[in-house]
């Protein structure tokens, strides 16, 4: 464990909590892509199946449970409790355009051809594109609530910090997981234009609105 990974996990947890609080407090999931949240719940479900087979540490187990719970509560709030407030017509990204290539690739490129490993690989590839429906929705509506931009900032920051963690682990433990690294870099690249808008607009107190 290193500081980049701890900060990354905290950033990830913070993002998830910001979103939960936003939906719960405002009793609305306007501007939030329910599809992205479904993909994140799927990412955690397929990645954390080893929760019952491999014990890494208390921290690892606790965080996995928290992430799983928060993901499903968020999906439940969007499609259950506050479904009347979800603008599903703007949340129109075709999930099959993501799920089909990700599934195919996880069978082609993996560390070993076992069920758990393929599901883990699937979750890694899926996570790198899971935010696309949300970014697509913002590009369609042309704007995002400030609290949603903070959610996206910490969500993007978490994988950027993981890249620092992988560089650190490569130099200190000669540990290197090519699938996670390549996916993580792709995932972070998808946030770059958002990071630019966040820094140039939101941090200057303006509302995030796309030109």
């Amino acid at each position: 464990m290193n500081v980049f990974r701890i900060l990354g996990d905290i950033s990830h947890l913070l993002a998830i909590i910001i979103l939960l609080v936003k939906i719960w407090k405002s009793k609305s999931c306007a501007g939030i892509s329910g599809k992205s949240q479904i993909l994140f719940a799927l990412v955690f479900t397929t990645r954390y199946l080893d929760l019952f087979t491999t014990f890494i540490s208390i921290y690892n187990t606790v965080m996995k449970v928290i992430f799983l719970l928060c993901a499903y509560i968020t999906v439940y709030m969007i499609y259950g409790k506050f479904r009347k407030t979800s603008d599903s017509e703007n949340d129109s990204f075709r999930l099959e355009f993501l799920l089909v290539p990700v599934t195919g690739l996880s069978f082609l490129e993996n560390h070993n051809f076992t069920a758990l490993e393929i599901l883990w690989t699937f979750s890694i590839y899926l996570e790198s594109v899971a935010i696309l429906p949300q970014l697509f929705m913002i590009s369609k509506t042309g704007e995002a609530e400030t609290i949603t931009t903070h959610y996206l900032f910490f969500l993007g920051l978490y994988r950027a910090l993981y890249i620092a963690n992988w560089i650190w682990r490569y130099h200190t433990e000669n540990f290197y997981d090519q699938i996670a690294v390549v996916s993580g870099v792709v995932q972070t690249i998808f946030y770059c234009d958002f990071f630019y808008l966040y820094v140039t607009k939101v941090l200057k107190g303006k509302k995030l609105s796309l030109p």
């Binding site: 560390h111 290197y176 997981d177 996670a180």
Partner: peptide, 10 residues
């Protein structure tokens, strides 16, 4: 490259 047999990251 030392690939991860055990996935110890979240």
């Amino acid at each position: 490259s030392v690939e991860s047999a055990k996935h110890d990251e979240l």
